[in-house]
Design a protein around this nucleic acid. Sequence first.
DNA 1: CGGAGTCTTGAGTATCTTCAATGAGCGTGG
DNA 2: CCACGCTCATTGAAGATACTCAAGACTCCG
Lengths: 234, 234
Amino acid sequence: MSCAYCRTDHSDKSAEWSHAEPEYRRLFTNCGHSRRYGPGETLFLQGDGNRGVYYLESGLVALRRSDENGNSALVCLNHPDDLIGYPAFLSQKEHRNTAEVLTPSKIYFIDASRLRWMLNSDPNLKESFLERALLDLDRAEANCAALLTADLRCRLFHLLLTFSKSYGTQLSDGSPGVELPVQRKDLAALLGAKPESISRLIRMLDQEGLVRFKGRLVAISSLNRLAAEVSIFN
Amino acid sequence: MSCAYCRTDHSDKSAEWSHAEPEYRRLFTNCGHSRRYGPGETLFLQGDGNRGVYYLESGLVALRRSDENGNSALVCLNHPDDLIGYPAFLSQKEHRNTAEVLTPSKIYFIDASRLRWMLNSDPNLKESFLERALLDLDRAEANCAALLTADLRCRLFHLLLTFSKSYGTQLSDGSPGVELPVQRKDLAALLGAKPESISRLIRMLDQEGLVRFKGRLVAISSLNRLAAEVSIFN
DNA sequence: CGGAGTCTTGAGTATCTTCAATGAGCGTGG
DNA sequence: CCACGCTCATTGAAGATACTCAAGACTCCG
Protein backbone atom coordinates (compact mmCIF):
# COMPACT_ATOMS: atom_id res chain seq x y z
CA MET A 1 0.00 0.00 0.00
CA SER A 2 2.11 2.87 -1.22
CA CYS A 3 1.18 6.50 -1.06
CA ALA A 4 0.51 7.92 -4.50
CA TYR A 5 2.00 11.26 -3.63
CA CYS A 6 5.31 10.57 -1.99
CA ARG A 7 5.54 6.96 -3.18
CA THR A 8 6.69 5.52 0.09
CA ASP A 9 5.14 2.51 1.65
CA HIS A 10 4.05 4.01 4.92
CA SER A 11 3.19 0.67 6.40
CA ASP A 12 6.84 -0.38 6.29
CA LYS A 13 8.61 1.55 8.99
CA SER A 14 12.14 0.80 7.91
CA ALA A 15 11.85 1.85 4.30
CA GLU A 16 12.47 5.47 3.72
CA TRP A 17 15.28 6.75 5.87
CA SER A 18 17.51 3.74 5.65
CA HIS A 19 18.62 4.68 2.15
CA ALA A 20 22.20 4.41 1.02
CA GLU A 21 24.49 7.03 2.43
CA PRO A 22 24.86 9.81 -0.10
CA GLU A 23 28.13 10.14 -1.96
CA TYR A 24 28.85 13.59 -0.68
CA ARG A 25 28.59 12.59 2.95
CA ARG A 26 32.24 11.73 3.55
CA LEU A 27 33.40 14.67 1.53
CA PHE A 28 31.36 17.14 3.50
CA THR A 29 31.98 15.70 6.93
CA ASN A 30 35.70 15.75 6.16
CA CYS A 31 35.96 19.19 4.63
CA GLY A 32 33.17 21.06 6.36
CA HIS A 33 33.08 22.78 9.72
CA SER A 34 30.54 21.19 11.99
CA ARG A 35 28.45 23.08 14.47
CA ARG A 36 25.56 22.27 16.73
CA TYR A 37 22.40 24.32 16.41
CA GLY A 38 19.47 24.65 18.74
CA PRO A 39 15.80 25.01 17.87
CA GLY A 40 14.99 28.46 16.57
CA GLU A 41 18.40 29.18 15.10
CA THR A 42 18.65 29.87 11.40
CA LEU A 43 21.27 28.80 8.89
CA PHE A 44 20.44 31.58 6.46
CA LEU A 45 17.62 33.97 5.68
CA GLN A 46 15.44 34.30 2.62
CA GLY A 47 17.13 36.96 0.52
CA ASP A 48 20.62 36.36 1.89
CA GLY A 49 23.44 35.91 -0.55
CA ASN A 50 24.89 32.43 -0.65
CA ARG A 51 27.98 31.74 1.43
CA GLY A 52 28.08 27.99 1.22
CA VAL A 53 26.16 24.78 1.62
CA TYR A 54 24.97 22.92 4.70
CA TYR A 55 24.99 19.19 5.30
CA LEU A 56 22.57 18.01 7.95
CA GLU A 57 24.10 15.12 9.87
CA SER A 58 21.45 14.87 12.57
CA GLY A 59 18.40 16.81 13.62
CA LEU A 60 15.62 18.50 11.73
CA VAL A 61 15.59 21.68 9.68
CA ALA A 62 12.68 23.36 7.87
CA LEU A 63 12.67 25.76 4.95
CA ARG A 64 10.35 28.71 5.38
CA ARG A 65 9.16 31.00 2.62
CA SER A 66 7.58 34.31 3.59
CA ASP A 67 6.18 37.38 1.95
CA GLU A 68 6.40 40.97 3.04
CA ASN A 69 3.12 40.80 4.94
CA GLY A 70 4.06 38.18 7.46
CA ASN A 71 2.48 35.27 5.64
CA SER A 72 4.83 32.38 5.81
CA ALA A 73 4.84 28.67 5.26
CA LEU A 74 7.19 25.78 5.79
CA VAL A 75 7.72 24.44 2.30
CA CYS A 76 10.10 21.61 3.12
CA LEU A 77 11.40 19.44 5.93
CA ASN A 78 15.06 18.43 5.85
CA HIS A 79 16.11 15.22 7.53
CA PRO A 80 19.57 13.79 8.23
CA ASP A 81 21.72 13.39 5.11
CA ASP A 82 19.86 16.21 3.39
CA LEU A 83 21.74 19.07 1.80
CA ILE A 84 20.54 22.58 2.56
CA GLY A 85 21.08 25.85 0.74
CA TYR A 86 22.57 24.34 -2.39
CA PRO A 87 20.14 25.89 -4.87
CA ALA A 88 21.38 29.38 -4.07
CA PHE A 89 24.95 28.16 -4.33
CA LEU A 90 24.50 26.46 -7.68
CA SER A 91 22.38 29.14 -9.28
CA GLN A 92 24.45 31.96 -7.80
CA LYS A 93 21.35 33.67 -6.56
CA GLU A 94 19.93 34.67 -3.22
CA HIS A 95 18.43 32.14 -0.87
CA ARG A 96 14.74 31.78 -1.61
CA ASN A 97 13.94 30.31 1.79
CA THR A 98 14.93 30.75 5.40
CA ALA A 99 16.44 27.62 6.94
CA GLU A 100 15.12 27.15 10.47
CA VAL A 101 16.50 24.58 12.85
CA LEU A 102 13.63 22.74 14.55
CA THR A 103 15.41 20.25 16.79
CA PRO A 104 18.99 20.15 18.10
CA SER A 105 21.04 19.47 15.01
CA LYS A 106 24.60 18.78 13.99
CA ILE A 107 25.32 20.52 10.73
CA TYR A 108 28.41 20.79 8.53
CA PHE A 109 29.04 24.00 6.64
CA ILE A 110 31.09 23.95 3.46
CA ASP A 111 32.36 27.29 2.29
CA ALA A 112 31.32 28.36 -1.21
CA SER A 113 34.81 29.00 -2.56
CA ARG A 114 36.09 25.69 -1.30
CA LEU A 115 33.07 23.91 -2.64
CA ARG A 116 33.56 25.51 -6.03
CA TRP A 117 37.08 24.18 -6.04
CA MET A 118 35.84 20.74 -5.06
CA LEU A 119 33.28 20.82 -7.84
CA ASN A 120 36.01 21.42 -10.40
CA SER A 121 38.24 18.66 -9.14
CA ASP A 122 35.53 16.07 -8.71
CA PRO A 123 33.05 15.74 -11.58
CA ASN A 124 30.98 13.22 -9.64
CA LEU A 125 30.08 15.84 -7.10
CA LYS A 126 27.95 17.73 -9.58
CA GLU A 127 26.16 14.48 -10.22
CA SER A 128 25.33 14.28 -6.53
CA PHE A 129 23.90 17.77 -6.56
CA LEU A 130 21.77 16.90 -9.53
CA GLU A 131 20.42 13.83 -7.78
CA ARG A 132 19.64 15.85 -4.72
CA ALA A 133 17.84 18.50 -6.76
CA LEU A 134 15.73 15.84 -8.45
CA LEU A 135 14.83 14.29 -5.09
CA ASP A 136 13.83 17.66 -3.69
CA LEU A 137 11.86 18.49 -6.81
CA ASP A 138 9.87 15.31 -6.51
CA ARG A 139 9.28 15.93 -2.84
CA ALA A 140 8.02 19.43 -3.57
CA GLU A 141 5.70 18.25 -6.32
CA ALA A 142 4.32 15.54 -4.08
CA ASN A 143 3.66 18.17 -1.47
CA CYS A 144 1.88 20.32 -4.05
CA ALA A 145 -0.28 17.42 -5.11
CA ALA A 146 -1.28 16.70 -1.53
CA LEU A 147 -2.07 20.34 -0.85
CA LEU A 148 -4.16 20.51 -4.00
CA THR A 149 -6.27 17.45 -3.28
CA ALA A 150 -6.13 16.24 0.31
CA ASP A 151 -7.87 17.71 3.33
CA LEU A 152 -6.22 18.62 6.60
CA ARG A 153 -6.93 15.33 8.34
CA CYS A 154 -5.29 13.44 5.53
CA ARG A 155 -2.27 15.70 5.40
CA LEU A 156 -1.80 15.44 9.15
CA PHE A 157 -1.86 11.65 8.94
CA HIS A 158 0.71 11.81 6.22
CA LEU A 159 2.91 14.06 8.32
CA LEU A 160 2.56 11.73 11.31
CA LEU A 161 3.67 8.82 9.19
CA THR A 162 6.61 10.82 7.92
CA PHE A 163 7.65 11.66 11.46
CA SER A 164 7.14 8.10 12.59
CA LYS A 165 10.00 7.08 10.31
CA SER A 166 12.50 9.20 12.21
CA TYR A 167 10.85 9.72 15.57
CA GLY A 168 8.81 6.59 16.00
CA THR A 169 8.89 4.95 19.41
CA GLN A 170 7.29 2.05 21.17
CA LEU A 171 4.91 3.13 23.90
CA SER A 172 4.65 1.42 27.28
CA ASP A 173 1.57 -0.48 26.15
CA GLY A 174 3.42 -1.75 23.09
CA SER A 175 1.54 0.33 20.55
CA PRO A 176 3.45 2.45 18.08
CA GLY A 177 3.91 6.13 18.88
CA VAL A 178 5.60 9.25 17.68
CA GLU A 179 7.35 11.96 19.62
CA LEU A 180 6.55 15.01 17.51
CA PRO A 181 9.71 17.05 16.97
CA VAL A 182 7.85 20.32 16.43
CA GLN A 183 5.29 22.46 18.16
CA ARG A 184 1.73 23.03 17.05
CA LYS A 185 2.35 26.22 15.17
CA ASP A 186 4.98 24.47 13.06
CA LEU A 187 2.57 21.64 12.39
CA ALA A 188 0.17 24.33 11.22
CA ALA A 189 2.75 26.01 9.02
CA LEU A 190 3.64 22.66 7.46
CA LEU A 191 0.03 21.75 6.79
CA GLY A 192 -1.27 25.12 5.68
CA ALA A 193 -3.60 25.68 8.61
CA LYS A 194 -3.87 27.71 11.80
CA PRO A 195 -2.77 26.28 15.15
CA GLU A 196 -6.37 26.44 16.36
CA SER A 197 -7.47 24.20 13.54
CA ILE A 198 -4.76 21.72 14.41
CA SER A 199 -5.93 21.68 18.01
CA ARG A 200 -9.51 21.07 17.00
CA LEU A 201 -8.55 18.34 14.59
CA ILE A 202 -6.49 16.68 17.29
CA ARG A 203 -9.47 16.68 19.62
CA MET A 204 -11.63 15.05 16.98
CA LEU A 205 -9.02 12.37 16.38
CA ASP A 206 -8.70 11.75 20.12
CA GLN A 207 -12.44 11.10 20.30
CA GLU A 208 -12.24 8.75 17.35
CA GLY A 209 -9.45 6.88 19.09
CA LEU A 210 -7.44 6.25 15.97
CA VAL A 211 -4.71 8.61 17.14
CA ARG A 212 -4.31 9.92 20.69
CA PHE A 213 -2.33 13.05 21.49
CA LYS A 214 -0.73 13.99 24.77
CA GLY A 215 1.43 17.02 24.31
CA ARG A 216 3.98 16.10 21.71
CA LEU A 217 3.55 12.41 22.25
CA VAL A 218 1.23 10.69 19.83
CA ALA A 219 -0.08 7.18 20.24
CA ILE A 220 -1.13 5.56 16.99
CA SER A 221 -3.50 2.65 17.37
CA SER A 222 -2.66 1.28 13.94
CA LEU A 223 -0.06 2.54 11.52
CA ASN A 224 -1.67 0.53 8.78
CA ARG A 225 -5.07 2.11 9.26
CA LEU A 226 -3.41 5.50 9.05
CA ALA A 227 -1.55 4.46 5.94
CA ALA A 228 -4.79 3.27 4.43
CA GLU A 229 -6.42 6.63 4.94
CA VAL A 230 -3.45 8.40 3.45
CA SER A 231 -3.52 6.09 0.48
CA ILE A 232 -7.20 6.63 0.00
CA PHE A 233 -6.62 10.33 0.42
CA ASN A 234 -10.16 10.71 1.61
CA MET B 1 6.18 45.29 -6.58
CA SER B 2 7.43 41.74 -6.80
CA CYS B 3 5.57 38.66 -5.73
CA ALA B 4 7.17 37.06 -2.72
CA TYR B 5 6.38 33.58 -3.87
CA CYS B 6 7.46 33.38 -7.46
CA ARG B 7 9.63 36.50 -7.34
CA THR B 8 8.47 37.94 -10.60
CA ASP B 9 7.38 41.50 -10.98
CA HIS B 10 3.85 40.93 -12.20
CA SER B 11 3.37 44.57 -13.09
CA ASP B 12 6.04 44.31 -15.76
CA LYS B 13 4.56 42.32 -18.58
CA SER B 14 7.77 41.72 -20.49
CA ALA B 15 9.83 40.30 -17.69
CA GLU B 16 9.45 36.63 -17.20
CA TRP B 17 9.18 34.84 -20.47
CA SER B 18 11.69 36.88 -22.39
CA HIS B 19 14.58 35.14 -20.66
CA ALA B 20 17.68 34.07 -22.53
CA GLU B 21 17.17 31.10 -24.78
CA PRO B 22 18.31 28.00 -22.95
CA GLU B 23 21.54 26.36 -24.00
CA TYR B 24 19.92 23.11 -24.90
CA ARG B 25 17.49 24.67 -27.31
CA ARG B 26 19.56 24.37 -30.47
CA LEU B 27 20.78 20.95 -29.51
CA PHE B 28 17.30 19.59 -29.03
CA THR B 29 15.68 21.23 -32.00
CA ASN B 30 18.50 19.87 -34.16
CA CYS B 31 18.65 16.35 -32.81
CA GLY B 32 15.08 15.75 -31.70
CA HIS B 33 12.05 14.67 -33.64
CA SER B 34 9.37 17.32 -33.61
CA ARG B 35 5.68 16.60 -33.50
CA ARG B 36 2.54 18.63 -33.07
CA TYR B 37 0.17 17.68 -30.28
CA GLY B 38 -3.41 18.66 -29.69
CA PRO B 39 -5.15 19.37 -26.41
CA GLY B 40 -5.81 16.22 -24.44
CA GLU B 41 -2.90 14.25 -25.80
CA THR B 42 -0.30 12.99 -23.37
CA LEU B 43 3.46 12.76 -23.71
CA PHE B 44 3.80 10.08 -21.08
CA LEU B 45 1.85 8.66 -18.17
CA GLN B 46 2.61 8.60 -14.48
CA GLY B 47 4.30 5.26 -13.87
CA ASP B 48 5.65 4.88 -17.40
CA GLY B 49 9.29 4.05 -17.85
CA ASN B 50 11.37 6.80 -19.34
CA ARG B 51 11.98 6.74 -23.07
CA GLY B 52 13.42 10.20 -23.54
CA VAL B 53 13.01 13.87 -22.91
CA TYR B 54 10.65 16.44 -24.39
CA TYR B 55 11.44 20.02 -25.34
CA LEU B 56 8.43 22.30 -25.57
CA GLU B 57 8.91 24.78 -28.39
CA SER B 58 5.43 26.26 -28.36
CA GLY B 59 2.18 25.58 -26.59
CA LEU B 60 1.29 24.64 -23.06
CA VAL B 61 1.73 21.38 -21.17
CA ALA B 62 0.70 20.48 -17.63
CA LEU B 63 2.02 17.81 -15.28
CA ARG B 64 -0.67 15.86 -13.48
CA ARG B 65 -0.16 13.71 -10.42
CA SER B 66 -2.90 11.27 -9.48
CA ASP B 67 -3.57 8.63 -6.89
CA GLU B 68 -5.38 5.35 -7.23
CA ASN B 69 -8.72 6.85 -6.16
CA GLY B 70 -9.11 9.34 -8.95
CA ASN B 71 -7.81 12.33 -7.02
CA SER B 72 -5.56 14.28 -9.26
CA ALA B 73 -3.95 17.67 -9.43
CA LEU B 74 -1.95 19.69 -11.91
CA VAL B 75 1.33 20.26 -10.12
CA CYS B 76 3.11 22.25 -12.78
CA LEU B 77 2.59 24.26 -15.95
CA ASN B 78 5.20 24.02 -18.68
CA HIS B 79 5.70 26.93 -21.04
CA PRO B 80 7.76 27.25 -24.21
CA ASP B 81 11.46 26.47 -23.70
CA ASP B 82 10.66 24.18 -20.78
CA LEU B 83 12.02 20.67 -20.66
CA ILE B 84 9.60 17.88 -19.80
CA GLY B 85 10.17 14.41 -18.48
CA TYR B 86 13.83 14.87 -17.67
CA PRO B 87 13.62 13.85 -13.99
CA ALA B 88 12.69 10.30 -14.93
CA PHE B 89 15.45 10.24 -17.51
CA LEU B 90 18.14 11.51 -15.15
CA SER B 91 17.13 9.45 -12.14
CA GLN B 92 16.41 6.36 -14.24
CA LYS B 93 13.06 5.94 -12.61
CA GLU B 94 9.47 5.95 -13.70
CA HIS B 95 7.66 9.13 -14.58
CA ARG B 96 6.05 10.56 -11.47
CA ASN B 97 3.58 12.69 -13.41
CA THR B 98 1.45 12.48 -16.50
CA ALA B 99 2.30 15.14 -19.08
CA GLU B 100 -0.93 16.52 -20.60
CA VAL B 101 -0.95 18.83 -23.58
CA LEU B 102 -3.34 21.73 -22.91
CA THR B 103 -3.04 23.81 -26.08
CA PRO B 104 -1.77 22.92 -29.56
CA SER B 105 1.94 22.44 -29.04
CA LYS B 106 5.07 21.79 -31.02
CA ILE B 107 7.30 19.46 -29.08
CA TYR B 108 10.69 17.87 -29.77
CA PHE B 109 11.39 14.41 -28.48
CA ILE B 110 14.97 13.32 -27.81
CA ASP B 111 15.50 9.62 -27.44
CA ALA B 112 17.04 8.44 -24.18
CA SER B 113 19.93 6.52 -25.67
CA ARG B 114 20.89 9.37 -27.94
CA LEU B 115 20.58 11.83 -25.10
CA ARG B 116 22.81 9.68 -22.93
CA TRP B 117 25.40 9.78 -25.65
CA MET B 118 25.06 13.53 -25.93
CA LEU B 119 25.47 13.88 -22.17
CA ASN B 120 28.78 12.07 -22.33
CA SER B 121 30.15 14.10 -25.20
CA ASP B 122 29.00 17.48 -23.91
CA PRO B 123 29.68 18.16 -20.22
CA ASN B 124 27.83 21.46 -20.40
CA LEU B 125 24.59 19.68 -21.10
CA LYS B 126 24.47 18.26 -17.62
CA GLU B 127 24.89 21.78 -16.37
CA SER B 128 21.77 22.77 -18.28
CA PHE B 129 19.79 19.97 -16.75
CA LEU B 130 20.91 21.04 -13.32
CA GLU B 131 19.81 24.61 -13.97
CA ARG B 132 16.46 23.41 -15.19
CA ALA B 133 15.99 21.23 -12.13
CA LEU B 134 16.78 24.16 -9.86
CA LEU B 135 14.30 26.38 -11.69
CA ASP B 136 11.58 23.76 -11.45
CA LEU B 137 12.35 23.17 -7.79
CA ASP B 138 11.95 26.84 -7.02
CA ARG B 139 8.74 26.96 -8.98
CA ALA B 140 7.36 23.99 -7.08
CA GLU B 141 8.31 25.45 -3.71
CA ALA B 142 6.73 28.76 -4.63
CA ASN B 143 3.59 26.88 -5.54
CA CYS B 144 3.66 25.08 -2.20
CA ALA B 145 4.04 28.35 -0.34
CA ALA B 146 1.09 29.86 -2.16
CA LEU B 147 -1.08 26.82 -1.52
CA LEU B 148 -0.15 26.87 2.16
CA THR B 149 -0.95 30.52 2.74
CA ALA B 150 -3.06 32.13 0.03
CA ASP B 151 -6.78 31.77 -0.54
CA LEU B 152 -8.42 30.84 -3.81
CA ARG B 153 -9.04 34.39 -4.97
CA CYS B 154 -5.40 35.22 -4.52
CA ARG B 155 -4.20 32.12 -6.28
CA LEU B 156 -6.53 32.76 -9.19
CA PHE B 157 -5.17 36.29 -9.56
CA HIS B 158 -1.69 34.90 -9.56
CA LEU B 159 -2.59 32.41 -12.23
CA LEU B 160 -4.21 35.13 -14.34
CA LEU B 161 -1.04 37.19 -14.12
CA THR B 162 1.02 34.18 -15.08
CA PHE B 163 -1.16 33.57 -18.12
CA SER B 164 -1.13 37.24 -19.03
CA LYS B 165 2.59 36.94 -19.69
CA SER B 166 2.07 34.43 -22.48
CA TYR B 167 -1.53 34.95 -23.48
CA GLY B 168 -2.07 38.60 -22.74
CA THR B 169 -3.95 40.61 -25.36
CA GLN B 170 -5.26 44.10 -25.80
CA LEU B 171 -9.04 44.26 -25.78
CA SER B 172 -11.09 46.43 -28.11
CA ASP B 173 -11.56 49.02 -25.39
CA GLY B 174 -7.81 49.17 -24.84
CA SER B 175 -7.80 47.47 -21.47
CA PRO B 176 -5.52 44.50 -20.88
CA GLY B 177 -7.00 41.06 -21.22
CA VAL B 178 -6.12 37.39 -21.19
CA GLU B 179 -7.34 34.57 -23.36
CA LEU B 180 -7.30 31.67 -20.92
CA PRO B 181 -5.62 28.67 -22.55
CA VAL B 182 -7.42 26.13 -20.36
CA GLN B 183 -10.94 25.20 -19.39
CA ARG B 184 -12.51 25.66 -16.00
CA LYS B 185 -11.83 22.19 -14.71
CA ASP B 186 -8.13 22.68 -15.42
CA LEU B 187 -8.18 26.00 -13.63
CA ALA B 188 -9.69 24.09 -10.73
CA ALA B 189 -7.05 21.37 -10.87
CA LEU B 190 -4.31 23.99 -10.94
CA LEU B 191 -5.74 25.91 -7.99
CA GLY B 192 -6.81 23.02 -5.82
CA ALA B 193 -10.53 23.66 -6.04
CA LYS B 194 -13.65 22.30 -7.69
CA PRO B 195 -14.96 23.74 -10.95
CA GLU B 196 -18.09 24.95 -9.15
CA SER B 197 -15.98 26.99 -6.78
CA ILE B 198 -14.16 28.57 -9.69
CA SER B 199 -17.47 29.49 -11.29
CA ARG B 200 -18.73 31.09 -8.13
CA LEU B 201 -15.51 32.98 -7.58
CA ILE B 202 -15.66 34.28 -11.14
CA ARG B 203 -19.17 35.54 -10.57
CA MET B 204 -18.06 37.40 -7.45
CA LEU B 205 -15.18 39.00 -9.33
CA ASP B 206 -17.46 40.00 -12.16
CA GLN B 207 -19.68 41.83 -9.69
CA GLU B 208 -16.68 43.55 -8.17
CA GLY B 209 -15.61 44.64 -11.65
CA LEU B 210 -11.91 44.14 -11.06
CA VAL B 211 -11.86 41.23 -13.47
CA ARG B 212 -14.59 40.39 -15.98
CA PHE B 213 -14.96 36.94 -17.50
CA LYS B 214 -16.65 36.02 -20.72
CA GLY B 215 -15.99 32.43 -21.56
CA ARG B 216 -12.25 32.09 -21.75
CA LEU B 217 -11.69 35.75 -22.35
CA VAL B 218 -10.83 37.76 -19.28
CA ALA B 219 -10.78 41.54 -19.11
CA ILE B 220 -8.55 42.91 -16.39
CA SER B 221 -9.33 46.47 -15.37
CA SER B 222 -5.90 46.98 -13.84
CA LEU B 223 -2.98 44.61 -13.91
CA ASN B 224 -1.33 46.61 -11.17
CA ARG B 225 -4.26 46.29 -8.81
CA LEU B 226 -4.20 42.56 -9.40
CA ALA B 227 -0.49 42.48 -8.78
CA ALA B 228 -1.00 44.42 -5.58
CA GLU B 229 -3.46 41.86 -4.28
CA VAL B 230 -1.12 39.04 -5.16
CA SER B 231 1.74 40.78 -3.47
CA ILE B 232 -0.32 41.38 -0.37
CA PHE B 233 -1.45 37.79 -0.57
CA ASN B 234 -4.50 38.82 1.39
C1' DC C 1 -32.13 19.77 -34.45
C1' DG C 2 -29.96 16.77 -31.13
C1' DG C 3 -26.41 15.30 -28.18
C1' DA C 4 -22.23 15.49 -25.48
C1' DG C 5 -19.36 17.92 -22.98
C1' DT C 6 -18.74 22.05 -20.42
C1' DC C 7 -20.19 25.56 -17.49
C1' DT C 8 -23.19 27.68 -14.17
C1' DT C 9 -26.47 27.92 -10.36
C1' DG C 10 -28.86 26.64 -6.00
C1' DA C 11 -29.42 24.68 -1.41
C1' DG C 12 -27.49 22.50 2.24
C1' DT C 13 -23.36 21.04 4.58
C1' DA C 14 -18.60 20.50 6.02
C1' DT C 15 -14.39 22.64 6.94
C1' DC C 16 -11.41 26.14 8.32
C1' DT C 17 -10.69 30.90 10.12
C1' DT C 18 -11.03 34.80 13.21
C1' DC C 19 -10.98 36.88 17.49
C1' DA C 20 -11.02 36.65 22.15
C1' DA C 21 -10.48 34.25 26.31
C1' DT C 22 -8.95 30.47 29.13
C1' DG C 23 -5.79 26.88 30.64
C1' DA C 24 -1.39 24.23 31.14
C1' DG C 25 3.50 24.02 31.61
C1' DC C 26 7.89 26.03 32.85
C1' DG C 27 11.56 28.74 34.43
C1' DT C 28 12.75 32.83 37.37
C1' DG C 29 13.09 35.30 41.36
C1' DG C 30 11.40 36.38 45.85
C1' DC D 1 7.94 26.69 48.16
C1' DC D 2 5.04 29.67 45.82
C1' DA D 3 3.76 33.66 42.97
C1' DC D 4 4.66 35.69 38.76
C1' DG D 5 5.22 36.13 33.96
C1' DC D 6 5.96 33.92 29.77
C1' DT D 7 5.03 30.95 25.95
C1' DC D 8 2.44 27.47 24.08
C1' DA D 9 -1.89 25.13 23.62
C1' DT D 10 -6.77 24.77 23.83
C1' DT D 11 -11.59 26.17 23.62
C1' DG D 12 -15.87 28.75 22.19
C1' DA D 13 -18.84 31.30 19.13
C1' DA D 14 -19.59 33.42 14.89
C1' DG D 15 -18.48 33.93 10.27
C1' DA D 16 -16.18 33.00 5.85
C1' DT D 17 -14.90 29.79 2.51
C1' DA D 18 -15.16 25.80 -0.21
C1' DC D 19 -17.55 21.29 -1.06
C1' DT D 20 -21.40 17.96 -2.44
C1' DC D 21 -25.09 16.80 -5.03
C1' DA D 22 -28.38 17.81 -8.25
C1' DA D 23 -30.38 20.40 -11.78
C1' DG D 24 -30.40 23.56 -15.47
C1' DA D 25 -28.02 26.40 -19.27
C1' DC D 26 -24.73 27.02 -22.69
C1' DT D 27 -21.73 25.79 -26.69
C1' DC D 28 -19.80 23.36 -30.07
C1' DC D 29 -20.35 20.17 -33.68
C1' DG D 30 -22.27 16.58 -36.17
